[in-house]
């Protein structure tokens, strides 16, 4: 163990990520069937349909979540899909508004006609169930303080019956609540989640309780490739691949040391 002190492991990782992030080298990613499924679903949504995008994450996961959210927002706006932004985590509220507003401007979309941001509601289970009854009663005003009825694109929206699907952009288990509680209203749930959470949602995807899912920075890179853009996902792929290799190297090295010390112990 003393052959490689802990701080060398840390410095090695820091240098590796720093250098690979600075290099502008494209890594060709193979698009997984999961990402293809998500892209195909968004592509199939008819123009003018309304989709809820729920920013269910905290600021800590922003480097991983942001590329996914940006790629999906760009795809949705390019397809002229109307978006309703909500957040069931306080920290996601500001982030979601900023992302939606910026990408909306990029595609010349008008607030209130093409997209709207309703903001945050406490107690996510109650908020999900309540929106199934009435979105207006759950969010009487939007994030900017406009009355629900005064927003043109919301006049024809009562509850989930008027929504094509919900995209939950999450870094934790909140998508599970969308599936379990939103699912009872027959609304399609799509998940854009962090890589660590992917296996949590596999059973829901396999049982069709979840319509589609993309995960992590790699998912973002794959989605960007399908959409034909270069974003944060693609830029982070080299660093992520290098970090994976570094971890593999450390596991192998650790085991070599372990077996050598065991052999020595047996001899002695």
């Amino acid at each position: 163990m003393h052959l490689l002190p802990r701080h060398f492991v840390f410095i090695g990782l820091f240098l590796l990520i720093g250098i690979t992030m600075a290099l502008d080298i494209d890594v060709d990613v193979k698009v997984s069937p999961y990402t293809k499924q998500m892209h195909a679903y968004i592509d199939s949504i008819p123009e003018g349909s309304t989709v809820i995008m729920s920013f269910d994450h905290e600021a800590s996961s922003l480097p991983e979540i942001r590329p996914i959210a940006l790629a999906m927002l760009r795809h949705a706006f390019s397809k002229n899909i109307k978006l309703i932004g909500v957040s069931l985590y306080p920290e996601g509220t500001l982030i979601g508004y900023r992302l939606m507003n910026n990408i909306g401007k990029e595609y010349n979309k008008t607030y209130g006609d093409d997209f709207v941001y309703l903001g945050f509601r406490p107690q996510y289970i109650a908020a999900i169930l309540s929106m199934g009854e009435s979105i207006e009663k759950t969010f009487p005003q939007d994030y900017l303080g406009y009355q629900y009825n005064a927003i043109p694109m919301l006049t024809s929206i009562t509850n989930y019956d008027d929504i094509n699907c919900v995209i939950s952009i999450a870094d934790g288990s909140l998508t599970t609540h969308w599936i379990e509680y939103g699912g009872q209203f027959d609304i399609k749930i799509l998940g854009a989640v962090t890589a660590a959470m992917v296996t949590t949602y596999d059973p829901y995807l396999s049982s069709n309780q979840m319509t589609a899912m993309i995960g992590g920075l790699r998912g973002a890179a794959e989605y960007e490739k399908l959409f034909g853009m270069k974003g944060g996902g693609a830029r982070g792929m080299l660093a992520q691949s290098a970090a994976h290799l570094y971890v593999i190297f450390l596991i192998v090295l650790g085991n070599i040391f372990y077996f050598r010390s065991r052999k020595k112990g047996a001899k002695n």
Binding site: M1, L4, R6, V9, F10, G12, L13, F14, I17, E58, A59, S60, S61, L62, P63, E91, L94, I95, A243, Y246, V247, L250, I251, L253, G254, N255, Y258
Partner: peptide
């Protein structure tokens, strides 16, 4: 929020990568 809270939260989250690297060397044994 953008210049203090978000970077600090991301920094704490990013520290996990260093712990994973250290744990993979020290604890992931056959």
């Amino acid at each position: 929020f953008e210049n203090v809270q978000a970077p600090m939260a991301s920094t704490v989250f990013a520290l996990l990568a260093f712990f994973v690297a250290s744990a993979s060397f020290r604890g992931f044994r056959a």
